[in-house]
Simulated scan of single mutants.
Amino acid sequence: MQAEPARWAERVGDEAPVTGYRIILPDQWAQAPLRQGTEEAVRRILDDACARIPADTPPDKIGPYKRELERRFREAVGQAVQSGALDLYLPVKPMGDCSIGASILVSESLLPRRQGQPQSEGEPTEAAVRLLSRDGVEGADLSAGEVDGALAVRREHVAKADSPQGAVLASRRVEYMISVPGDPDRWFVAAFSTVGGGSPRDELADVLVEWFDALMANFRWRRG
C-alpha cells in the first residue's frame, strides 16, 4: 500500500516542489487521514474488519465484538485528530498468526526562527533535538542522519503505562523527525509505537522496530 496523503508546496532550488510524502506499507495496515476524509476512511476500515469475522462466530458475540472494535478504533482516531496530526496508520489484519499492537502517527512541527537569526551549519540538527525535547522525555536514544536527502533525527524510548490516558501497557516508541526540503523550520514527524507481545523490550517489539526503521529507510518525498 502506498500512502501519499500530506501536501506541501515548497520550492527546492531547481528541483520540483515537495508536495507530500510516500511510504509503502503492507496490506495489513490501513491509513486514516485526519484532516479530511476521516469518517469515510474509518467507515471503510471498520466495514472491512467486520467482513472478516468468521462465518461460524455465534450471533450473540458478533454485536459486542463490532461495538468494541468500533469504540477502540474511533478512540484511537479521535486522539490522533485532537493532537493535530496528519495521518494515522494502524494494522487492521493479522500479520501471519500474530495480531500486532502498533501504530504510526504522522504529523508536522514548526520551529519559528527569530528574525535576523543566522543559520549555522549545525543548527538544523540542534533544532530537531530541541523539538524532540519539548515533551520532557528523558533517557531516549538519539541519532541523526539523512532520509531521502533530508536531515533526519531519530529518537527511541520506552513510554510507561498511563491508564488515565488510555495506555494500559508500556510501549516502545520510535520517532523520525525529518526536515522538509526548502523549509528549514518545518519538520515531518513519523512516530511509531508498539506494545510488542506485551513488553516493549520483547522479541516482537525488537522485530517491529527493525521493520519501522526499514520502512523509513524507504521513505520518499513526493514532488511536483
Rank of each mutant, 00 (worst) to 15 (best):
E40P: 13
G122C: 05
Q36V: 05
E10A: 07
G182W: 13
L46P: 11
S109G: 12
P94T: 00
V168P: 03
R130Y: 11
P164C: 06
R44T: 07
G78K: 09
P33Q: 00
V18I: 08
A41E: 06
Q36R: 09
N218A: 14
V207W: 12
A144I: 05
A9M: 04
D47S: 05
G198C: 00
T125E: 15
Y89P: 11
L131S: 02
F212W: 02
A140Y: 14
G20Y: 04
D162N: 10
R154H: 10
A214E: 04
A217H: 07
I178W: 09
E40C: 00
A191R: 15
E70A: 10
A167M: 12
R114H: 15
W211M: 12
A190D: 11
A51H: 06
V77G: 05
A170C: 05
E10T: 13
A150N: 09
R172H: 14
A3C: 03
R172P: 11
D97M: 15
Q28P: 01
S133Q: 07
A159R: 10
R74C: 08
L86D: 13
D141L: 02
Y89W: 11
D183L: 07
M177C: 03
S107Y: 04
P200I: 02
E126H: 01
Q117D: 11
D97S: 13
R155D: 01
R201Q: 15
D14G: 06
E146W: 01
W221I: 13
V129Q: 07
A128H: 04
A3I: 06
L86W: 10
F192C: 08
G84E: 11
S133N: 07
R172V: 10
A32T: 15
A85Q: 10
E70W: 03
A41P: 13
G182L: 08
S143R: 05
R43F: 00
R223A: 04
A3E: 05
S83I: 03
L215F: 03
E203R: 09
P200T: 00
A55S: 06
T19N: 08
L110V: 12
R71T: 12
V12C: 03
E138P: 00
A167T: 12
P58W: 06
R113K: 11
G224W: 03
D202S: 10
I62G: 09
I178S: 03
R222G: 04
P181Y: 03
V158W: 07
E108H: 09
V207Y: 12
A55Y: 03
Q82H: 08
R43K: 04
E210L: 08
R222V: 14
I45S: 03
V77H: 01
D27A: 15
D213F: 01
L90N: 04
L131G: 13
K160D: 14
I104S: 02
K160N: 04
W8F: 15
A144H: 10
Y65V: 02
P5C: 09
E15M: 10
R67F: 11
K66Q: 15
A85R: 05
F192T: 09
A3N: 06
E175Y: 10
V195Y: 06
A205Y: 07
D206P: 02
G139C: 14
M177W: 08
S120E: 14
H157W: 15
R43V: 06
D47W: 08
S120M: 14
A80D: 14
A140C: 01
